[in-house]
Computed example of a mutant assay.
Amino acid sequence: MYEILLNLLFVAGLWLAVEHCLKRETTQSLEDASLIPFADDPEVARRVEAATGKVVKAVAPEEAKPGYINLEM
């Protein structure tokens, strides 16, 4: 009986914590956050834009600086 009560309290606490964290977020900010993983690759950003119709704010890849070697990892 106590285990069930503790489980219910845990679920309610988790729900309240998530609600508190997302309270100030807007629909637009959540959509922008969902597109961040595609922002560093312009080709993938174009494909995601074509597939979803949402604009991905892509960032150009960093150019090699003179005197430095860019290593592929």
Rank of each mutant, 00 (worst) to 15 (best):
P61G: 01
L16A: 10
D32F: 05
K23Q: 12
I4W: 07
A51M: 14
D32N: 09
T27C: 06
M73R: 15
V48S: 02
V59H: 07
P37S: 03
V55Q: 14
V59Y: 01
V44F: 02
I69H: 12
S34A: 15
L35P: 02
R47G: 01
F10G: 04
E72R: 11
T27G: 09
D40W: 10
L6A: 10
V18E: 01
L14Y: 09
L9I: 05
L35K: 02
A33C: 07
D40L: 13
A12K: 03
G13K: 01
A39E: 12
D40S: 15
E31T: 07
N7C: 11
S29Y: 02
I69D: 12
L14D: 04
E31G: 03
E63N: 10
A51C: 06
H20L: 11
I4Y: 03
L6H: 06
E19S: 08
T52H: 03
N7T: 08
V44G: 01
A50Y: 00
F38D: 02
L9P: 00
V18N: 01
A50E: 15
I69C: 08
E19C: 05
F10P: 00
V18R: 02
F10D: 08
E43N: 10
E63G: 07
I69Q: 13
P61C: 04
L14P: 06
K65W: 04
A17M: 03
H20M: 11
A12S: 14
G67K: 02
L5C: 02
K65F: 06
